[in-house]
Amino acid sequence: MEILNAKRKSAINVPTRVRFAPYTVLRRLILYVTVISFSLLFAAPLIWMISTSLKTDPQVYHVPPIWIPNPIRLANYPEALSIRPFGIFTLNTLRYALTSTVGAVMSAAVVAYGFSRLQWPGRNVLFFLCLATMMIPFQVRMVPLYITFKNLDWLNSYKPLIIPAFLGIPYYIFLLRQFFLTIPQELSDAARVDGANELNILLRIILPLAKPALAVVGLLQFMAAWDNFLGPLIYLSNESLFPIALGLRQLRSDSVEALMWPYMMAASTMTILPVVVLFFFVQRTFVEGISITGIKG
């Protein structure tokens, strides 16, 4: 109580007007102007997308560019949806994006645990071998993978887009391994003393501590799957299975008429909503994860 009273007293003594030195004000002003400028710079594509989605076609090509459309054309949204079935495309994308995200997080966590917390012969060699596979671009593996999936009778299904994620993605393995290495070994030792096996340690000690890193991996994989164009292009040949990336591309013409920017932007705005919503839900964890996994560089 005494401490509380002391705080109250000191609060009473604080002057009602806070005076800032001119230097401090100037510094803050520069800071805010810089931050706001960069924010606008980075937000510009998003704002432009939303703005264009509400324009008429002549407004799109107006010089100088129009940022706030007048009149606002909301009909672009239902019309864009009527040109191609973006609802189905969105559901299709969610279907494999969510599942592959679960698979990528689970498999990367298990493999990274083996590479970081367990001592076994050849561990580092295999880890570097794992990392080396990151150097082979998808275009090089495209045909062999296609033939493999064809022999497995997986073509024209989401299996080629989902199942490989359950087998571990090197980049995520690397990220989680680096994070797991920062967790004190004493925690694992204490659990072992209490009789926990390695699976228990992973599930009950490591993973709860690694939530920010897991969130980063999950979000990165979700976004990668959401944006994936080449994989679905090659593996899917039935339009009812097409994801958003292929659906949006269908709005692009091949010399028939101009690209219908308002429809394209309306469809894009609607289709990025799940990603934006997801980011808002996990942004604190995501930012925390970015800083502790060292992605920020």
Partner: peptide
């Protein structure tokens, strides 16, 4: 979810 997602797709529901 994984098993469900990998199962065969439902019949096409596209306008065409």
């Amino acid at each position: 979810i994984g098993i469900a997602a990998c199962m065969a797709a439902p019949p096409a529901a596209l306008p065409s």
